[in-house]
Amino acid sequence: MRLSIDPDKCSGHARCVARAPDLFDVDDEGASFVLVDEVGPDLAEDARKAVDVCPERAISLHED
C-alpha cells in the first residue's frame, strides 16, 4: 500500500505526523510529506488513522 498527500489541500496541521511519525514529516514550509514508498503491514493501521485525522482530507491511501 502507498500513501500520497495532495499539496494543494495540505494546510500544515501536521496531525498525520503526530499520528504516524514513521510515515510522515513536515518540510520547512510546514507542509507534510510521506517518508516511505511502501507502507508495510506493521504500519498499515497507522496509515489508515493518519488518513482519518487529516482535517483537509489531503492524504490518500492506495491499496495495491
Rank of each mutant, 00 (worst) to 15 (best):
M1H: 10
M1S: 12
R2L: 02
L3N: 01
L3E: 03
S4H: 01
S4C: 00
S4T: 10
S4L: 03
I5E: 11
I5M: 09
D6L: 08
D6T: 10
D6W: 09
P7S: 10
D8G: 00
D8I: 01
D8R: 04
K9S: 12
K9I: 10
C10I: 04
S11W: 14
S11G: 12
S11M: 14
G12C: 05
G12Y: 07
H13W: 15
A14I: 07
A14G: 09
R15E: 14
C16V: 10
V17T: 11
V17G: 07
A18F: 11
R19Y: 07
A20C: 08
A20V: 04
A20N: 06
D22R: 06
D22M: 04
L23D: 07
L23F: 09
D25M: 09
V26S: 14
V26E: 15
D27G: 09
D27L: 08
D28G: 04
G30I: 04
G30P: 02
G30S: 03
A31M: 10
A31F: 15
S32Y: 11
F33L: 14
F33D: 12
F33G: 09
F33V: 10
L35W: 03
L35R: 10
V36L: 08
V36T: 11
V36R: 05
E38N: 12
V39W: 06
G40A: 12
G40P: 00
G40V: 08
G40Q: 07
G40T: 12
D42T: 03
D42Q: 06
A44D: 12
E45D: 14
D46T: 00
A47K: 02
A47T: 06
A47N: 04
K49C: 08
K49E: 15
K49V: 14
A50M: 08
V51C: 06
V51D: 04
C54K: 06
E56H: 12
E56W: 10
E56R: 09
R57E: 15
R57K: 13
R57T: 12
R57A: 15
A58Y: 14
S60R: 11
S60C: 02
L61G: 00
H62K: 01
H62I: 01
H62T: 03
E63C: 00
D64Y: 09
